[in-house]
Amino acid sequence: MDSKNTFTFLAFFFLGIVVALALQIYFFSPISPQILDVPSPSLVNSIFPPNNHLQEVTKIGEGLLKDPEDVCVDKDGTLYTAGRDGWIKRMLKNNGSLLQNWKWVNSTTLLGVATIAKGGIVICDTQEGLLRVDDDGVTTIVSHFNGSKLRFADDVIEGEDGSLYFSIASTKFGLHNWFFDLLEAKPNGQLLKFNPQTKETSLLLDNLYFANGVALSSDQRYLLVCETWKSRCLKHWLKGDLQGTTEIFIDNLPGAPDNINLAPDGSFWIAVIELSNKAMKFVHTSKIAKHLLATFPRLIKFVQASHKKATVMKVSEDGKILKRFDDPDGTVVSFVTSAVEYEDNLYLGSLNSNFVAKLSLNTDSA
């Protein structure tokens, strides 16, 4: 074969590879993406610059937990958290920092936890739905909605009448491929309500961009839900003249809001995660790049940045940022997904730790 024919062969060979790769990406990509507008954190950072306050945390139960995504504290001061190994751990108020095994759930997909008035906790299992866990064991509260199995229950809160408000992060993707939902950047999430009297589940909000944390206001007049991919939280009115309407509570957060929890003073704590590192943010502006990552998911690790830092923010009832705490390099704690205040301490859940972090709020830095 002469040099001209060799060149022609190689040209067609590599062209064939490119065409085959393009067809692979186009026809076998699991997503149908749209562009995601990731807000710049510059404005918030100029007023509330990143700091090192979360590097001052103490570690509760270090080595005894596996990625405790959420924490909650009941009226008696007992702290609960759930790990990816299925263990529900608790720390009694008068037991110092002793974390003990309480109940085991046969699941590795446990997320949001909340206390309930009748005792025990309710927990979101992304595969099984809402579960109640108490001294008698584990029971299923809700597993289906509109004839379909719940796919991705994420966070839950109980109202004063016993109703359970909970988020469905995605109706299309599950926990283990949550990054596909981010790449697709479409409103696949929902906010649901379970009525314990009628045993019925109803839809409050649809078309949410990864519905995540859920919180009730101190007077229970409105409900907050975080839209992670939109870097914002929505306010849905439950009572009053605005009942049934929805508005933006806070937007343009310097990251993606995960869980949100009511603080004792009526404000809210929001855990904020980093979706992608600075060098790879272009991915969210390119459908081709999104298809490529979805088709070859091993590449996703080069985009993710959630394990690189930690941020929590305190936000007033009218949606104004009050405080900010960070571990900007993830030196001590990273991928913080929830923050709960109890008796002047902040307890933090994380999807990248083997402990619950505790930050004293009785310091000059706080």
Rank of each mutant, 00 (worst) to 15 (best):
F14L: 12
L21N: 10
F27V: 15
L130S: 03
D161P: 01
R132P: 02
T171I: 08
G86T: 03
A117K: 14
T295V: 07
L275A: 11
G129D: 02
T8N: 13
L361Y: 04
G77Y: 03
I116T: 08
N45A: 09
P41Q: 05
G266I: 00
H284K: 11
R151H: 09
K287C: 06
V303K: 06
D37A: 15
S148N: 15
F145N: 10
T58G: 08
K66D: 10
G240P: 01
Q24K: 15
K290T: 05
D85W: 05
D219E: 07
A117V: 11
S218M: 06
V312N: 07
D134I: 04
T363V: 01
S143R: 08
V356T: 00
K281H: 10
S365W: 13
L359G: 04
S353T: 09
T171N: 11
D85S: 11
L223R: 00
P328C: 05
F27R: 14
I121H: 10
S148W: 11
A117I: 11
T58K: 08
W87N: 09
G159P: 02
E128N: 14
I47F: 10
T6C: 11
F325H: 03
A185F: 02
S107D: 03
A153P: 09
K186P: 02
L36N: 13
S365K: 15
F302C: 04
F282R: 08
L253H: 00
N354A: 10
A310H: 06
N195G: 07
N207G: 01
V356G: 04
P33L: 07
V312S: 04
F166S: 00
Q127L: 15
D206N: 14
G61F: 08
K301N: 13
T78K: 11
I123H: 00
C124A: 14
A153E: 00
W178F: 14
I123K: 00
V44P: 06
D134E: 02
K193T: 05
Q100E: 15
F335Y: 13
G349N: 04
F179N: 06
V156Y: 00
G244Q: 02
C72V: 12
K75R: 12
A256P: 00
G86Q: 04
K301G: 11
P257T: 00
A82K: 06
K281M: 13
K172Q: 07
N106E: 09
N362Q: 13
N212A: 04
E69S: 10
I60W: 03
